[in-house]
Amino acid sequence: MNGFDFDLTGARLSALRSGALHWAGEGCLAVSDLHLGRSERYARRAGALLPPYEVEETLARLDADIAACRPRTVICLGDSFDDAEAGALDDRAALWLARMMAGRRWIWIAGNHDPGPVALAGEHLAELALGPLVFRHEAVPGATGEVSGHFHPKVRLAGRGIPCFLVDRARAILPAYGTYTGGLFAGDAALCGLMGAGALAILTGRAARPMPMPRGRNGP
């Protein structure tokens, strides 16, 4: 598995190159900010008709991660759907999701885009405490053992914007997993304020690679 292993308040975690977080000890896989249905929301609101393949693309990657990790629990850290109507996935996508959910615990954490529980199986929670960790959508200043998403962090390296995890002693922030998602550069004040000294940025892409979290230099 192409992952980068690190410890968070006693839990041994692995940041996967896909942008998912694997907690082998608990048989748990976390992903954040799937933003399923974003292209449909654009169309519904009379905006541009984006290539309608982003749900398929995102689910295919998630399927591959699940097949590789065989998790007992999957946690989606919020902003899984772009809005309430986007939650009504087409039959093919809903079936695909149902097949992935079969035989395991599946938790939908609520995010700021999520309209509340959508008509899908699984548990719908505001946050989840599991062992030494707490899973929520948006990081809370001062929290420890916290796994969250929301910010879509990225770093600029070798001329490219690369989605990344941000990890320090107290928390891990996951990159956006969805295909049609933008990002916030890690040098942004909001992220610098949250992450402590010695924080790492773990790059996604062809391999999960750690580097010191950039501060200030990667803005604006």
């Binding site: 292209s39 449909e40 169309a43 519904r44 609101r45 009379a46 905006g47 008709l49 984006l50 290539p51 309608p52 393949y53 087409d90």
Partner: peptide, 28 residues
């Protein structure tokens, strides 16, 4: 959108109404 996957039947940008093409949603 001209995609091979016909995904936007309900949300077309232009609709054929009475033989004429028109904006589905005038807000567009």
């Amino acid at each position: 959108g001209g995609y091979a996957l016909k995904a936007y039947d309900r949300w077309q940008r232009l609709m054929l109404r009475g033989g004429l093409w028109t904006l589905r949603d005038p807000r567009a």
